Simulated assay, not measured.
Amino acid sequence: MFDSKDMMCDKADYYSNETIDTFREQYKAQYKYMQYSNLTNGLRDGLSYFYIGFKALTGAITLGDFTMCVSSASTLYWGLYSIVDNIAATVKACGYAYEYLKFDAISDRMTKGDKPVSDGEHVIEFRNVSFKYPRSENYVLRNINITIKQGEHLSVVGLNGAGKTTFIKLLCRMYDVTDGEILIDNINIKDYSDSEYRKLFSVVFQDFEL
């Protein structure tokens, strides 16, 4: 659609590889902690059981003491294992949090105004609007001119890929127009407060989820 196959495939490959690399680094860190845990636990258990067994065989401790020592060693093992396991889980969770913070820090390139939206009836105008998606040379919409007054009922029809959904996305400022301008009450929508402007619309797209 819109000759964007190569762009979409490139983006899918990029984000897929980035996701795989992220998980690989997280599991490497977790694996390192688990290996350290298994090594230390193995050494501790081996030395503990050897010492306790040696004491029992030489008669230095009774059978009851031997049983108590083995039970204590087992309790110590699971306690230390839990600590190391929680450290590994924390490192993994921090990796997820880091990726979220990186995403949250991405700057918004869209122009944000601060003009409040006035009360009353509104008039929408598309004035010589043309649009093409990022990294695409083909226009989805070209030189669209239309005025919509409040209270009017409008149906937008066309073939798949004709730009019907794109028309609505531009109106909702999910994208900025490539050329031309969209006006509400003769004011460019870029000049309005973004949060107030979006309250004017209630949109249900074809891929909705409730």
Rank of each mutant, 00 (worst) to 15 (best):
N160K: 05
R173H: 01
L63E: 09
N188S: 13
D10R: 08
Y100E: 09
M174C: 09
A93G: 01
G120K: 01
Y49W: 02
L76H: 08
Y31I: 12
F131V: 03
M34C: 07
D194E: 15
L183S: 05
K92D: 11
T75E: 11
Y14N: 03
L170H: 01
V156K: 06
V177T: 12
V156N: 08
C172G: 07
T165C: 03
K28L: 15
L171G: 04
D207H: 14
F50E: 04
T22P: 00
A29R: 14
I146W: 07
E209Q: 15
L47A: 07
G64C: 06
T75N: 14
E181Y: 09
D108H: 00
I124V: 12
F208T: 12
S202E: 11
S48N: 14
M34L: 13
I182C: 04
I182S: 02
Y175K: 02
S82T: 14
R198F: 04
E196P: 01
I168D: 03
T58I: 03
F126T: 02
V123L: 14
V117M: 03
D6W: 07
E121C: 10
I144W: 01
I146F: 11
F103H: 11
K5M: 13
N138Y: 10
R173K: 05
T40Q: 12
D65P: 04
D114A: 15
F126L: 02
E137Y: 09
E181N: 12
S202I: 13
S130D: 04
N38T: 10
D119L: 13
F205A: 13
F208Y: 15
C9M: 14
D13A: 08
T90C: 15
Y81W: 12
F167E: 06
N188V: 05
N38D: 06
A29D: 11
G161C: 04
Y36K: 11
I52P: 00
S155R: 12
F103D: 12
Y197W: 03
K164G: 04
I124C: 08
K5S: 15
R142Y: 15
T111Q: 13
L183N: 04
N38V: 05
L141D: 05
I124H: 06
R44L: 00
N138D: 13
A60K: 11
L210K: 11
K190C: 05
L171S: 03
T90Y: 14
L210H: 07
R127N: 13
D21T: 05
E18M: 10
C9L: 13
I182A: 05
